[in-house]
Simulated scan of single mutants.
Amino acid sequence: MLRSSLALFASLAVALPTAAFAATPQSFKGEYTVSILGLSVAKATFSSSYEGDTYSIDGSVSSAGLATIFDDTRGTVSSKGKISGKQLQPQAFRADYKSGEKASMIDIQFANGTVIATKVVPAPKKRNPKNWIPLGASHLASVLDPMAATVIHADSLDKVCGRTVKLYDGEMRANLTLTYYSKGSISVRGYKGETVTCRLGFEPVAGYRKNRKALKYLKDRSRIMVTFAPVGQTGVYAPIHATVSTKIGTLTVSAERFEATE
């Protein structure tokens, strides 16, 4: 449960404040917590830097609180690429994590927005073709890694939602559909102001087992809400809060810090 929570946490929360088209280097930092049933189960810190049309993001994620008794998971993630038009165009993504004594790694390489190589350690188990939805070449074009997928470039808060994001996490391709829900405000270290909340629809596309109960629940029954905040005057919006309903309770991701460091 914790490993899947950490993966979902990373997918929702790693998008840090982005200074698009920065003429001079700019850096930002975000600190997040994830909790379920009111209990903290994970923490993460991410630092990002932007210069011209390039970006890089580095972070660490670890289990926390009572969760460390049952599953001590720690890891690092990184993403780098270019800013093309109103989107990030990843060049490389890597996640290394260790759960107990078991080490795992995901490495994805891109060229012009298309995945050209993926390495997963340990290697995935042999798939049953009867219930496996395979990835095709078309599934790996114009996709974003889990870090770049949550950064939204828009003209205003009103235009953050109403879009579909193509996500590739090293195994599965999924579409994340953002639908407008409400506006509000929030105050955390580094930011106080307006927000917009989108309801997120999850649709697995390929690279998954079609009878997997967890994915079916996310697709058909889970209520996923993501709140975005503007990053200065850059025209970029990043997640500052999110909730995901699960079979055992609501998973909550919250930013405790959301600010520029330079």
Rank of each mutant, 00 (worst) to 15 (best):
T246E: 14
I57V: 15
V115D: 06
S4I: 13
A20M: 12
A111L: 12
A260I: 09
M147S: 13
N112A: 15
C161H: 13
K102V: 12
F46N: 03
Y237F: 15
R127H: 14
A206D: 01
V253H: 02
D220Q: 07
T114R: 15
A148Y: 05
V41F: 06
E171Q: 12
I57D: 04
T114C: 04
F70C: 09
A19I: 02
Q91Y: 04
T76S: 14
L8Q: 14
L66S: 09
I152V: 15
L8S: 08
G249D: 02
H139T: 00
N211Q: 13
A92R: 14
S48A: 15
A13D: 08
S62Y: 03
Q91A: 13
K159E: 14
I36L: 02
G65D: 11
G75H: 07
W132P: 00
V196K: 04
D169H: 00
R212M: 05
A174E: 03
G162N: 10
V205G: 01
G136F: 00
A229M: 04
D96Q: 06
K80T: 12
Y181I: 03
A255V: 02
D96P: 01
F228D: 05
I57T: 10
D72V: 02
V143N: 03
L176E: 07
L167H: 11
S62D: 14
E51R: 12
K216F: 03
M225G: 02
G30K: 12
K192N: 14
R163E: 07
K125I: 04
Y55H: 08
E262C: 04
Y237V: 04
T118H: 01
I116N: 11
L2T: 13
I240D: 10
Y32W: 12
Y97P: 02
R212L: 13
S185V: 04
T227R: 08
R127E: 08
S187A: 12
V231K: 09
T261M: 08
A242E: 11
A229Y: 07
L37I: 04
G85T: 08
L6N: 05
G136W: 00
S47H: 09
S254L: 04
F21G: 10
P146Y: 06
S78E: 05
K219Q: 09
Y32P: 01
G184R: 08
T179A: 12
T24K: 14
Y55T: 09
V244M: 13
A10S: 14
F28R: 12
G193S: 05
S245D: 14
K86G: 03
S27C: 06
A23E: 12
A154L: 07
I83G: 03
G65V: 06
F110N: 09
A242G: 05
L200Y: 03
N211P: 03
V14E: 11
D169W: 00
K192D: 13
S62T: 12
R127F: 06
K216C: 01
